[in-house]
């Protein structure tokens, strides 16, 4: 393995890692606030991809309108899922919420299957994102650069919202102690809705970029990325936004580099996240940046 090959793989790994990171942030925020593994989160990636696809291919919208519309609608869907499915059972045991989440996830996937069909659709790529830049011997796709820039901007925005704004402070307070927050006169449901909206819109941004990188839109495309993004969130320390992005990067790099070093293992690529999860649980269950939360 020579120098430029390693750098080339590093570029691919970073791109994949950014996408995992975007998805992981949504998981980590919802889990931090509600202690709920939102299984439907991965499927939001699929929904946003379909919306962007239909916006461009069927309604003939210019791509920026279609992309932004898809992000906004996915955020709305995130709020709807919370209000419709999770809010009524907030007080019941955790296992009920998990079952409902599985139900929502399956509903979204199968609605996609019935309404749109299982045949993968190829995603139209705007010309801005195609092409690539050659630096020395390595070839950097323009899309990778865009993914890196967009992810960084969204991550910084997200951290600023959570650290600086009033609603962000309310979110963090809610993840510590729900009852005290309610005593402070904060509308808990509004904060939770905001959390879902923020997480879902990040997932939507990730979903659209995912489709430009792997241009096949199909109803079950969100399952595996969703699963891996949760592992990334645990790896970074669940409840921690920077941690989620870091976990995503590590997972993306690990997947690409392990297969690059040992091409015989390419069949096991999807298993890497799982073994990583087992190792974290055995060695440092709170993740890299996680702190032990009062339980």
């Amino acid at each position: 393995m020579d120098y430029s090959f390693a750098l080339q793989q590093l570029v691919y790994g970073l791109t994949l890692g950014c996408l995992y990171g975007l998805l992981a942030i949504g998981y980590t925020m919802v889990y931090g606030v509600l202690r709920l593994i939102n299984f439907a989160h991965g499927d939001l990636l699929m929904v946003s991809a379909y919306m962007a696809f239909f916006g461009i291919a069927i309604f003939g919208l210019p791509w920026p309108v279609s992309f932004i519309g898809s992000v906004l609608l996915t955020a709305l869907l995130g709020i709807l899922i919370d209000r419709g499915a999770y809010k009524p059972i907030r007080k019941s045991p955790r296992i009920n919420a998990l079952i409902t989440a599985i139900g929502v996830s399956f509903l979204l996937e199968n609605l996609g299957l019935v309404l749109i069909g299982g045949r993968p659709k190829s995603f139209p790529m705007p010309s801005l994102f195609s092409g690539s830049i050659v630096v020395g011997t390595i070839n950097i796709p323009a899309l990778s650069i865009w993914i890196f820039i967009i992810t960084s901007v969204l991550l910084v925005l997200c951290v600023l919202v959570v650290k600086k704004t009033r609603i962000g402070i309310a979110m963090r307070a809610l993840s510590r102690d729900m009852e005290t927050v309610m005593l402070m006169g904060i509308d808990k449901d509004r904060v939770i809705s905001f959390t879902f909206a923020l997480g879902s819109s990040l997932a939507a941004a990730g979903g659209i970029m995912w489709c430009m990188k792997y241009p096949a839109v199909e109803p079950f495309m969100g399952v595996i990325p969703g699963l891996k993004a949760f592992v990334a969130a645990v790896l970074g320390g669940i409840g921690n936004i920077t941690g989620a992005a870091l976990g995503g990067l590590i997972l993306g790099l690990a997947e690409v580099l392990i297969v690059a070093v040992e091409p015989d293992w390419s069949g096991y690529r999807d298993a890497i996240a799982f073994f990583l999860m087992i190792i974290i649980l055995l060695t440092r269950p709170t993740g890299i940046l996680g702190e032990r939360l009062p339980d």
């Binding site: 079952i99 409902t100 139900g103 929502v104 399956f106 509903l107 199968n110 609605l111 019935v114």
Partner: peptide
């Protein structure tokens, strides 16, 4: 059938 089952699952849970 799967749509039906997922709706039933959510409704039963709610």
């Amino acid at each position: 059938r799967m749509i039906l089952f997922s709706v039933i699952l959510i409704l039963v849970m709610l």
